[in-house]
Nucleic acid binder design. Structure first.
Lengths: 207, 207, 207, 207
DNA sequence: CATGAATGAGGTTTCATTCAT
DNA sequence: CATGAATGAAACCTCATTCAT
């Protein structure tokens, strides 16, 4: 339910109650249980939606990628990930929490399979981008899945990192800039031959 | 308390009860409240210990760094972070959850200040490493604090990412290798002049 | 709930537990919280019922008072108050404790307003009785609200006083007699012209 | 302890903890139990102090009462009671709550006896005032103990009543005026022959 | 005499879940 | 399909009291 998203976004997994969600959805608590086996499953379903969106974006990149330049490939990846973030920041963060937590253990097998599949799919799509780059001799000869894992890690790391700074230090959100610099560094780090123009489009003021 | 760590590590923040912890510590529930204002504060105190350990490790690097080579600098950073992970993997993961969550809002001001301080201190120590590298003309002319943020993000991202794969796909833990590759890429990405031997100490098949 | 009244009456505000009440009401503890925000609010709701009963009795007096004699007026008041006492002695005493206690500060605004309103209403109804008596030249020219406050004080004072003697000295309850004498004295004290027959229907030695 | 008084005054019987009191007294919780069997007993001891003060004041009246006039007698009583109130308003109110509550049942026999004795003593001293007035033909031929009970009831009723108004309606404290009017009415009500000058020293603005 | 750390029973309250309608 | 009142287990937390020092 789109309404559940609002509630989880606002209160977080633990503080949100089934009644809150039911109220927001203009349903009764009992009705929620007709559609979702339990609270965790409801929450996870939402995580799946964002994973699905991520997959769609990633596949769109591989399809429309006549443009061969490594930098553009990485740039496209970055844009996709940033869009996923903007699609629903709080749910994305919640999903990063979901990964690696006790919640995962309560899921129904089907749901867990679903998540597995989407996760692997997104990794593989990403990996294909790097594989092509490697074949073309543009990227270093590293295992493409490893590289895919690393960009994903960078993405989630930066998102959580910025969120953490936002809460702890009351800073504003520099996600876009930090993500930009991180991907730039990453891109340069995996290119085989140094870029022609050495610069570092200074990501001004970013922390 | 060392006992609380065990319980939180095993059950996670939400599933662990104060009674569990008390039992593990061979104390009564009431006694816990003599030392910690509430459950969140007990949990956060543990996070602080790991942040403190991180800081000690980082400072140790800056102090003993007669060795100037950029690659060594990054390598030392990586080693420190990996040690922090091994110091207590589950608590580290829990701490990444703590950052950016509703829990932070219930903390006593002192505790929150404590966390802020440790966070900032670790960032600044890291930033100094990069600042020196930049001055020496070895690293790209990027804001050192931004670079520090990025390594930290890479670190937490990789940790969570590996943890997530471990739970979802039942894979074993490739953290060390993934972290290795990630830092290598990062190091190469921020070096001003390309390394002499272009290689990529192949991170054997690791994902 | 009528069941809560029984428990509070028997054990008092502090010793009565929500579980006691739930058991008496043949409900589960959780269910109580569907209807009452917390323990204090449940308790106060009961106090309101007795205030409501008091108001009904007082209004009934003003309405059916064709009989003009001052002594009858006071007599009617006394009867009303005594009936309120008999309606539920322990809750009345509890209510006197509620007034002027820390409990009042935890109430929801609506409930507090409700209590305020009922309190003021009962005072005003009483005051009107005196106002008429004053207009007719039967009662002394004192502020009617002040007189109303005084009868109310006498009422609560006598109730608590008798209760206290009952507990401390194990005496039986002479409330009716003490109240009778008190009101007689009061009535004589506010009459403008002395009563014809000076007597004092001897309140047979009771204290 | 004079320190316990402060704590009970500020927080009330239930909200005040033994540790609060110990801290205020600059003692340890354990030490309190060397002097008082339990919390209730500590609380009651304080009530006793105010009862003792009341007794002293009452006895002083009977001793220095060469002045025979009934109005003066009552006036002296009123002054004594008002002084007791001012001696420590909150403890007096707490004591009125103590009377007629479950607390009384937990007291040690000695303490209970002590309270009984003081209570009865103060009643009897008061009763003697009225007895003399009756003998002299000034007061109506009512049982003196009954009259004593009534003044006591008026006193406690008015105190609680004013306190209640103060909390519920945020009015300021009109105790002195209300008490003044109440005693005036009472005094007139028990006099056998009407006072020469009929007036009612208007207790201006009193409610 | 005094301490104060430790207790642990017991209180209030929450909320995911169910089931009769 | 939907309801929503009721559940009741279990959580967090308090605090009067004790006892080894």
């Amino acid at each position: 339910m789109v309404a559940a998203k609002r509630v989880f976004s606002e209160k977080g997994l633990n503080k949100a109650t089934m009644e809150d969600i039911a109220k927001e959805a203009e349903l009764s608590p009992g009705t929620l249980y007709l559609y979702f086996k339990n609270k965790d499953e409801l929450f996870s379903s939402l995580s799946i939606r964002i994973l699905q969106y991520l997959n769609i974006r990633l596949e769109h990149i591989t399809n429309t990628e006549g443009e061969k330049k490594p930098r553009d490939r990485i740039e496209a990846l970055k844009e996709a990930m940033y869009d996923v973030y903007e699609f629903d920041p709080v749910m994305l963060i919640n999903m990063f929490h979901l990964q690696s937590s006790e919640t995962l253990k309560n899921l129904s097998p089907e749901l867990l399979d679903n998540i597995k599949e989407l996760s692997q799919s997104s990794i593989q799509t990403t990996a294909r981008l790097f594989a092509e780059g490697i074949e073309e001799g543009e990227f270093i000869d590293e295992h493409p899945v490893a590289l895919a894992g690393i960009v994903w890690a960078i993405f989630s790391g930066v998102v959580l990192w910025e969120e953490s700074k936002r809460i702890i230090n009351d800073e504003k959100n520099y996600l876009k800039q930090t993500l930009g610099t991180a991907f730039e560094v990453f891109e340069r780090g995996i290119r085989k031959t140094p870029a022609k123009k050495g610069g570092s489009r200074k990501a001004d003021g970013s922390t």
